[in-house]
Design a protein around this nucleic acid. Structure first.
Lengths: 194, 194
DNA sequence: ACCTGAACACCGTTCAAGT
DNA sequence: ACCTGAACACCGTTCAAGT
């Protein structure tokens, strides 16, 4: 990549991160190009679709989630690992409002720029879920796709400003459902066993 | 209302119902006016905001839900009544894709044309929930706002085409969470006790 | 009273023309 | 190679002008 192209690419990504954080996944691409001081067609050259731009924005977070799943698989109990990872997923999706609906579409659309990331993420979740199920800690009538869907639903709930006061509570309710022996799941850091 | 105005109003509503069913809550208002054979400003005269148009579209369904809640309160067990009403709510919201997010915003926005309907709906759900809680059939750490939020989450899940195969299953999971003694909740008509 | 077309300021997407 | 401005076909919203 030529030096000027690299500069434009980085600038676009930085501006897009700020704009999408503020406006959500349906932010104006024109506005992003404008604020980046770049022609609109330059944005399209680097990111041929909206999904491609979002994929670039989310890649770091997605990679971290995958790494984190690996860590949790060895460092925590099956139950703690699953719930903790769920929390991280929801927080990641919440960074860019409205991105979850695109992810739900992307997981079945092999052409989408977000497809690979979604499949990887579902696979990581499936590993943690299967482990918890094997340990008798998670209900067995849920599969990785259901888990992915529930993460989406939780992210959607978090995206609704009016539900913000109950967001943590609703997380606990839905996370608790996944566990075999439902009991209150604390949404903050003190773990799930108290 | 003058006869010609009445005709335009009815025509707009009929066309809007078809277009919003197909395109979702963010359908083009211009397109609706065009297909109705009416000037765009005429649509704005009858429905000053998008919410006002959706409110007119949803009113019938909302009224039916309220009536249904009253019926269920006397005709069914607290548990069956709550789950059955939840199913109806989700089906109603699913008629117009994307309407749930607007409802979540409207319940806190007293200026929204959808506000009153949302408050009424939440109140009806709260009655059924409270009754089930009093009978020891629903967990007591959920209030009417949580119930409203969970309906929204379920409607959102139903709006995602890729999750359609699991929609009934996910309904059962979340509906089951609300009940005190979680057990599989059948999404179809055979009740929740088998 | 009620309706309309046109205007304004946006948007996503594409492409010929520039360096 | 890479960038750009302009073009095209859309949008939501408003308003002066018509009957």
């Amino acid at each position: 990549m030529r030096a000027d192209a690299r500069k434009n690419y980085d600038q676009l990504l930085a501006v897009a991160s700020a704009v999408v954080t503020e406006e959500g996944a349906d932010a104006s691409l024109r506005d992003i190009a404008r604020r980046a001081g770049v022609g609109l067609a330059t944005l399209y050259r680097h990111f041929p679709t909206r999904e491609a731009l979002l994929e670039a924005l989310l890649r770091t977070g997605f990679d971290e989630l995958t790494t984190r799943a690996d860590e949790l698989e060895t460092s925590s109990s099956p139950e703690d690992a699953l719930v903790s990872w769920l929390r991280d997923c929801v927080a990641c999706a919440h960074e860019y409002r409205g991105v979850t609906a695109l992810m739900m579409a992307a997981i079945e659309d092999t052409e989408s720029a977000l497809h690979a990331s979604c499949v990887t993420m579902r696979a990581a979740g499936t590993r943690l879920l299967t482990r918890a199920q094997a340990a008798g800690m998670a209900r067995t009538d849920i599969d990785g796709t259901d888990l992915f869907a529930l993460i989406g639903a939780l992210a959607w709930l978090n995206d609704q400003p009016s539900l913000a006061p109950r967001a943590d509570h609703l997380f606990g309710i839905i996370a608790g459902t996944i566990l075999t022996n439902p009991h209150p799941v604390s949404p903050s850091s003190e773990g799930v066993d108290q």
